[in-house]
Design a protein around this nucleic acid. Structure first.
Length: 145
RNA sequence: CCAGACGGUCGGAUGGCCGCUCCGUCGCAAUGGGGAAACCCGCGGUGGGGAGGAAAGUCCGGGCUCCACGGAAGUACGGUGCCGGCUAACGGCCGGCGGGGGCGACCCCAGGGAAAGUGCCACAGAGAGCAGACCGCCCGUCUGCCCCGGGCUUCGGCCUGGGACGGCAUGGGCAAGGGUGAAAGGGUGCGGUAAGAGCGCACCGCGGCCCCGGCGACGGGGCUGGCAUGGUAAACCCCACCGGGAGCAAGACCGAAUAGGGGCGGCAGCGCCGGGCAACCGGCCAAGCGCACUUCCGCGCCGCCGCCCGGGUGGGUCGCGUCGAGGCGUCCGGCAACGGGCGCCCCAGAGGAAUGGCCAUCCCCCGGAUACCGUCCAGCACGCUGGAUACGGUCCGGCGGACAGAACCCGGCUUACAGGCCGUCUGGCGUU
RNA sequence: UGGGGCGUCGCCAAGCGGUAAGGCAGCGGUUUUUGGUACCGCCAUACCUAGGUUCGAAUCCUAGCGCCCCAG
């Protein structure tokens, strides 16, 4: 691959959109449940992999009816998306698909705690790594301290 | 000032950091990447747009698209139901009418037909749809007892006439009153009567006819009938009017692999039976292939290969937001709904679904504090002291900021909703 | 998106204009040494919500809430 973005500090992640992709991640049975969210992970293979030119880390979001009405479900997904951009993107393993599932608590949970939930879930699933280019690390590490 | 009625409107504000999506524009990326194809995809700068009054429920009406259909009428089914208007249309809206509620502003009403037919009206009650007579009221007959009169008498009574009160008696009249019921076959009053009854009369109600006003629903008046016609149609039904079906996962286009369909060519097979003039069709056997392999048995498949064609699934693009029953402003007509003229504007377009995440300050709300300022109360040495704070500041705290997220688009309806603002009106109290 | 159905006591469930059955569970009693079984009694407990029609509504109508199913 020839990534056009090499020196930039922003970590791009792709998006899971097809039902089959979500089922594949769920079928891997690598999941961990935190108070504010539920994380699933799966290493990509020859069938489930990003198309060329896309980022090689992909994330999908799920907010079912159990979370609430459309307003609550939208808000839960948006908060999770923001947390993923801050926490998961810089520390994600390459060639891995993630699915973040919203829970009823996701909407009410303080944002700092939500970020900690995500980081803890990644570590529990052994899907955490330190940024590969620490010199270009962005200022998105506020969750730890 | 308090209480209330109706209508309209808004539905947090400002800023910072980091992001999303669409459109325009400039530059870079390039002989660029992905994909079978259709088609999709960067990076950086800059400018702009980016949820609602209900976007909701999906209860109606349309546009749009496909399907069906010769016209008209009818049947069935579903819906609507006072009148007039508005509208593209509606079960919507506006203005009226009638009925009901409220002191009032005002609110509520599926509000056609019950003398076309059918059904139903429990229990209670004498009687409930061809009404009926339990208590009761009245008139007789019979009879009991009491009072009054007459006659007879052997003074014990007997006969007879009248009156009053009665009777497990009996023959009729009545439907006022009692009682039952949601409802008892017009209501109230007077007359009338043996007692009563529309039996008669007055008023009210109801029906019929006529006149007047109104486009009409209907209203007003007159004459007349003499009560005939209980309720229920959100029971069946009758009448009038309306309705072809499905829905953007509609639909249009582009178009893999696999299986199946068709055509052409080559090769293999071409035994038997049935049908047919034949082309050919159907069946059976064998061969072949598969069930790991060999033999037997069993089961299953049935010409093989190549090329081409069309339908079509996954996938992709369009549909899809430039133009609309469009928005804003203004003028005119109309009581109004609404219509018309003119000017300006282009105003969300996602697609596992953008419109956000976090933080400050302000605003509002809730709880607490009240040293201080105001306010109120008390004391007076008249300027202070003590207290209160339900109110205005001030300070502190608040996982406090309603209902809720476009999905093809409009017009309505219904439902949810913290709080604020504006206007009109009604009732009460006070002051002048 | 379109269509269909159901909400009755703690659970299951009848009733389809006039009285809200029944079973299980629960409580009390009898029988039994005790428990179970059996029998008797008590369930003064229920019609999803709000309006309306009707003399009268669980039942009919309208609106809403919740749940389930079917088709694409």
């Amino acid at each position: 691959m020839a990534p056009p973005v090499s020196g930039k500090a922003r970590y791009k992640v792709g998006r899971l959109t097809k039902r089959a992709e979500f089922l594949a991640v769920a079928g891997a049975r690598r999941k961990w449940s935190a108070p504010g969210l539920l994380l699933q992970a799966r290493a990509q293979d020859g069938v489930q992999k990003p198309r060329k030119g896309e980022p090689d880390v992909r994330v999908g979001f799920t907010a079912s009816k159990k979370v609430g009405g459309a307003v609550e479900r939208n808000r839960a997904r948006r908060r999770l998306r923001a947390a993923v951009a801050e926490v998961l993107a810089p520390h994600a393993l390459p060639a891995t698909d993630y699915v973040v599932v919203a829970r009823a608590e996701t909407v009410r949970r303080p944002y700092a705690a939500l970020k900690q939930d995500l980081a803890q879930a990644m570590k529990k699933l052994r899907a955490w790594q330190d940024p590969p280019a620490p010199d270009a690390a962005p200022q998105a590490d506020g969750g730890g301290t």
